[in-house]
Design a protein around this nucleic acid. Structure first.
Length: 263
DNA sequence: ATCTATTCCTGGCTGC
DNA sequence: TGCAGCCAGGAATAGA
């Protein structure tokens, strides 16, 4: 489940291979992940030069000399460098020095060529690794609902998904269902600190590999070994020993310690 | 305007 | 061994 740390790891691992290179040929195989159409994408990408690759939240942008290649990994998306294409290879980019494969079993991901980026894609919130407390707090005060739903909302901040939302709320000792209106400035400060702390630690360990996430070289992350609540229902809380609970918040499986995290 | 529920996908797991 | 049924969830979309 690629979230900010996993996407950051992917971008870091592909950048050295692709930046400055030319796309000789593009082959699109999935209508689902390429909604703008096969031929438009193949024509637009063929011959293009990759000037850079960057990340905003979970979105990946390849800046081309003639447009933008937009990639979102969704749930099971991978960008693999010089790998043997599996039956789930949805797009292949043949560069002048190798092949970049977009592999996505469930096709929740996106792989699209745009001459100019559509409004909807550029309207995300600030990147979760690049948000200072004042910005975080002022944006928080304008919202309602539960804190977890807000953290998952990419227009609030971009990059947090289900795993890191649970982990950072545990670190902040805040119950995922806590109404935003009940969060004090001091609490907000702790949440912000944990947001940056958890994401930075996860980037250091090259992300979390829960099911099949790997970087461009096929290397798994290691942060899952440090998960304190996510996927640990029934196991003891690492702080107090109480069994970690699983519930549903914002339509997502949610893990928390009922003793350490109070509403 | 905002928030919540539904839908898309398919492999993996559970239980009969 | 086979298979139905359920689960995982990012984000667009529809609905409240």
């Amino acid at each position: 489940m690629p979230e900010l740390p996993e996407v950051e790891t992917v971008v870091r691992s592909i950048a050295p291979h692709v930046v400055g290179r030319t796309i000789l040929r593009a082959e699109l195989r999935s209508k689902r992940v390429t909604r703008t159409g096969f031929s438009a994408a193949e024509t637009g990408l063929g011959g293009a030069k990759i000037e850079g690759v960057r990340r905003l939240g979970k979105q990946i942008f390849f800046d081309l000399d003639r447009g933008i290649l937009y990639v979102h990994l969704g749930m099971t998306g991978k960008l693999l460098w010089n790998a043997e294409p599996s039956k789930y290879a949805r797009a292949l980019l043949e560069l002048d020095n190798g092949v970049l494969i977009f592999d996505d079993v469930r096709q929740f991901g996106r792989f699209e060529f745009f001459e100019a980026l559509p409004e909807a894609l550029s309207q995300k919130g600030p990147d979760a690794l690049n948000i200072d407390f004042e910005t975080f707090h002022s944006r928080l005060k304008q919202r309602r609902g539960s804190i977890k739903a807000l953290l998952l909302n990419q227009s609030f901040i971009a990059g947090v998904g289900n795993i890191y939302a649970d982990e950072l709320l545990f670190g902040a000792r805040v119950h995922p269902r806590t109404p935003i209106a009940r969060i004090s400035t001091a609490r907000a400060r702790v949440i912000h600190r944990e947001l940056l702390g958890v994401l930075r630690a996860a980037v250091e360990l090259r992300g979390s590999s829960i099911s099949d996430y790997v970087d461009a070289e096929g290397i798994a992350g290691e942060f899952q070994q440090l998960h304190r609540v996510y996927g640990r229902a029934g196991k003891p809380c690492p702080i107090c020993g109480a069994p970690v609970k699983r519930t549903v918040v914002a339509q997502r499986g949610t893990h928390y310690c009922p003793r350490c995290q109070r509403v």
